[in-house]
């Protein structure tokens, strides 16, 4: 048994992941979008969270290459970008499954049976263990801290999609519907 507080947050790279050449994010339209974002703040640093979101939208996670690119675009050091990146749990520092499933298990949802929902997702996706990506690369399931929808237990986020009132039965259906 692990007493570590972060046991549920472990995210490991999926087995199928191979290093591919890095495609820069901030070119063309995305560069223009970033420039619009930059115009909203008096410092370039303030665009760091938005820039990391753009990277994740494009690549699905934020690699060391992406860290270098963001640092260069915003005049920051790569170490600084990594420090900020790793503070925020929604950014992926490793590749994750195509459907990244986050189940809220904090107390309000926990008392409503959220752990059963987690189990249902783990079973239905074949991930087996929290933080592991299924062999086909489609799913990663993690427990997440309070999603702020406690009255709709159990809320689940799949990538950017927010699903309320998920039950173990619904979990299986949700997984079955995904490609």
């Amino acid at each position: 048994m692990t007493y570590g507080p972060s046991a549920g947050q472990l995210v490991r790279p999926p087995a199928h992941h191979h290093d591919e050449p890095y495609v820069p994010v901030f070119t063309g339209e995305r560069r223009e979008k970033l420039d619009v974002i930059l115009s909203r703040y008096p410092t370039r640093m303030a665009a760091l969270l938005p820039a990391l979101w753009m990277v994740q939208d494009r690549h699905g996670w934020v690699s060391e290459h992406a860290v270098e690119e963001v640092a260069q675009v915003l005049d920051l050091s790569p170490a600084y970008v990594k420090g900020v990146l790793s503070f925020y749990t929604m950014y992926h520092q490793h590749p994750v499954g195509k459907h990244f499933i986050q189940v809220c298990t904090t107390t309000p949802c926990n008392v409503c049976g959220a752990e059963d929902v987690v189990k249902a997702f783990l079973d239905a996706t074949g991930c087996g263990e929290l933080g592991l990506t299924s062999d086909d690369g489609r799913f990663t399931v993690i427990e997440v801290e309070c999603l702020g929808a406690c009255g709709f237990a159990t809320p689940v986020m799949i990538n950017d999609e927010f699903i309320e009132s998920v039950t173990p039965e619904l979990a299986a259906r949700i997984v079955a519907e995904r490609d």
Binding site: S77, A79, S86
Partner: peptide, 27 residues
Amino acid sequence: MGDVAHDPVLNVSERGDRAFIGKADGH
């Protein structure tokens, strides 16, 4: 490294008791 050397190659990574002093690959 950040405020005196103006070469911010170190950071605090992660948070809570998982936090550690980190750096970027290749720097």
